[in-house]
Amino acid sequence: MTSELVKGVGVLKSSEGRDILTDYTYPKDKEVLPLVIFCHGYKGFKDWGAWHLGIDEIARSGCFAVKMNFSMNGTTKDAPEDFVDLEAFGNSTYSQEQRDLASVIAHYRSNPLVANDRVFLIGHSRGGGAVLLQGYHNEEVTGIITWAGVSDFRKRFPHHERFEKWKQEGVFYVVNGRTNQQMPHYFIFWEDYIANEERLNVQKAAQHINKPVLIVQGTQDPAVPLKEAHLLHQWINDAKLVEIEGADHVFGAKHPYLSNELPSDLAEVIGQTIDFIKNN
């Protein structure tokens, strides 16, 4: 018999006083559940595509499952699926995302339904790098799962002439292919990274992490090449690597996603994730 799910929304405050929008799902009549927190990727948000269907499945398996929007991802509490605050997006930093994630972990670990000695982080794409960093630096995290996770932040910044132009003009723009918005990145993005590079080095975190890690990667991902998953697997002691044959960056999903059934590739990702959580 399938457990009835309880759902709710929580608005936390970031270290800078911005809203961190979260939602949670857990099976009714259960207690002391593992905490699972999902982090979106670049130009993403917690309610993108089919993420909600996947997180519901994780909750049904016996977890207290949380999705979060980083406080400066460009959405707002009142417009959680639209990039209406491009100034926030442009001023976001990797350090800010780490502080946001730490705040969400601390908040939900205090919930009486949560087994606070079982805290799992899931990160998609750029969020995969974020959860690896958090998992390394935060002793409260007990397991990490990356879905199409990146292996490096530095190489994703502009280089050579583009970098010099960015430094001179103070901003560069990236087109959002779905919305056609010109999304800014101010130079503070780079300045924060350089000032905190040792702490934001995904490779260093991966090579020193001593916790269970699951790496899930599609073999036909155009955004994060398969070799990045292989690098993470090489760096992390005893990590488990699962390759989803033929899967793209979002495992067959799209936004908006109108079906009530998971894409087959994402269903496989969710199944592997549930098994990993149960076994760790």
Rank of each mutant, 00 (worst) to 15 (best):
L258D: 10
M1N: 09
F120A: 01
D19T: 13
K155C: 04
H160C: 01
P212V: 10
P225K: 02
W166L: 05
G246F: 08
D117Q: 00
N180V: 08
E16T: 14
L232Q: 14
K30N: 02
V36I: 13
M183K: 02
S3V: 12
A115R: 08
Q272Y: 14
D248A: 07
E81M: 09
E140H: 14
D29T: 05
R109C: 15
L262V: 11
V242W: 01
Y94A: 09
E164L: 04
A88L: 10
Y24P: 01
F38H: 13
K28S: 06
L231D: 10
W147L: 11
A115N: 15
S92A: 13
Y257I: 05
A205N: 08
P256K: 11
I209L: 09
N91G: 06
F45N: 03
H255N: 09
G49P: 10
H185W: 11
H208Q: 08
H249T: 11
F64R: 07
I244S: 05
G149W: 15
H52R: 13
V131I: 12
G143K: 07
D82C: 10
S151Q: 08
V141H: 01
D29M: 03
N279I: 09
P212W: 11
D78L: 14
E268S: 11
L200V: 13
L33E: 07
A253L: 03
T93P: 08
F64K: 02
V224G: 01
F276Y: 06
A253M: 15
F89E: 08
R162V: 00
M72N: 03
A239P: 10
V84Y: 05
H160F: 10
C39M: 14
I55N: 04
I188S: 08
G49R: 05
G41S: 03
E268V: 12
L33F: 02
V6N: 05
E228A: 12
E81V: 11
K165W: 04
Q203P: 00
E87N: 14
I215E: 11
K43Y: 03
S61F: 04
P256Y: 14
K43N: 01
K30P: 00
H208K: 03
A79N: 15
P80L: 07
